[in-house]
Each structure stands twice: as structure tokens, then as C-alpha cells.
Design a protein around this nucleic acid. Sequence first.
DNA 1: ATAATTGTCCTAAGCACCTAAGACAAAATC
DNA 2: GATTTTGTCTTAGGTGCTTAGGACAATTAT
Lengths: 119, 119
Amino acid sequence: MKWNLDDSRPIWPQLKEQIMQAIVAGEYPKGEAFPTVRDLAEDAGVNRNTMQRALSELENIGLLITNRTSGRTVTGDDGLIVKIREELAQANIEGFLREMDALGYEPAEVVKMIERGLK
Amino acid sequence: MKWNLDDSRPIWPQLKEQIMQAIVAGEYPKGEAFPTVRDLAEDAGVNRNTMQRALSELENIGLLITNRTSGRTVTGDDGLIVKIREELAQANIEGFLREMDALGYEPAEVVKMIERGLK
DNA sequence: ATAATTGTCCTAAGCACCTAAGACAAAATC
DNA sequence: GATTTTGTCTTAGGTGCTTAGGACAATTAT
């Protein structure tokens, strides 16, 4: 997958977020096999331990399931995937609107700018 | 002013961003006096040096002007303030749309969700 | 059976960030 | 003239993040 990492904050939350996005967007289909830690780390250009930290968080959430020695699989729980997708979208929307408000933009203005930015 | 700091990333960029927002939103009027480093640091609950790092960046950008021993003032350059306000808004919009796309939302859907989130 | 794979744990080192506190020159204030 | 204020610089210490590499048990592959 395509990685977009920067040094403005710790790398492992960025890995976590981008893998979450990839899963809820269907890039890694539910129930199917997931790449190994070592492969993913090499692909992202980070250390094995850094990637593991991201993956173990996704496991706590329930998005990934670990089978000790035969790798990981994406959860088969579609309800969970949909729920997380909506939560991420909601948080993104709220953060966006909060910052536009902090910059002094009126709601009506925000809608216009979004429509303009989409075409 | 109201501070909103978390430990997800370094504090000084957060201070920088929130002060920028306050200035472009008019909370600190252009050309007028700006609080001292020590006062601002105490208000935000951070160390003097951390606040200074944020302020020196705003000085490099040109938003603040330092008068060695008589404190700082907000720039009187209204064009600069407007320009920075628009750049921040633009970056915010692009980041928002990029993430919604990464989550697999269609543009039309995004507009609807924004309109819903605003009322 | 042997070798490779996989997730996981561990130690060590380097680095940036943050706090704390002392110090200084220059200007403002009294 | 003496004191305070202001921005700035400096040193020191603690913490979390990241890399690097070694190690292990359990499973898979050959």
C-alpha cells in the first residue's frame, strides 16, 4: 500500500491510522490474510518494532486477528468495520469544522469552499 | 486565550498553530501589543522556552514583530494576515478531503455530511 | 527431520522534545 | 539612579520515539 509518513508526530500512530483507513476502505478485504509485520515494515520503510506497535493496537481494537505463527487476518466482523469507518469520518468532519471556525469562517462559507474544492 | 494542547505531537507547533489561528481570526488585532512570553507561557501552562520557540517561528513568518525590550506587537500588514488565513483554510480543506477520500467516501456524500454537520 | 517463517520480547543507542532554572543586555518604570 | 521588565541564551535532566539487532517458541514448508 501507499504510505504517507512525516516527522511531525510519532510514526506508529500514523501507521495505525493509515492501515485503519486501508481496511475500512476495503483495500484489505475482511476475513482475508494480512501481510506479515516484517513485510509491512519493509514496505513502509520503518523498523519492525515500530510496525508491530501499530499492528498490536489494531488488534486491540479488533480489526486484526493474530494467529501466532501463521500470520494475521483482517476481521470478518463487517459491523465493526462499518462502525470504525463512520467514527473516523465523524472525527474528521468535526476536526475540520472546528478549525474552520477557529479561522473565523462562517458555516455558509465553508460549504461553498468545500463544493469548490471538489470539482 | 483558550488553549487546546495534547501529547499526540510536540507542543510548540500546537502553540504556533493556535496563536496563528487567533491572530488571523482577529482575536489579537493587527498592529496592537501582544502578551509577553512569560505571560503567555504561564497562561498556556508550558515552559517559557517552549512558548518562545512558537513565538520565534511566528516572527520568522512575519506575523509578530519583536521590540527587544518592550515586548511584541502583531503585524500591521493586513495582506499578510489575509494570505495566511487563506493558506491555513486551504490546507485544512485539502487535508479533510484527502482523508474522506482515503476512507472511501464519494464527493457527493462528503457535501451532504458537511451540510448535516453544520446545522 | 530439517530449515524457514511468524509473532513477540529484549537490550542498547541516538535523537528530539519538554521542563527547570540561571544568567545577561537593553529598555522601561519608578 | 535603582529596580523591574523583556527577549534571549545557556546548561542540565528526564521522557518517549525510533532504529538496530539478537533471541525464542510454535507453526509451516521443504
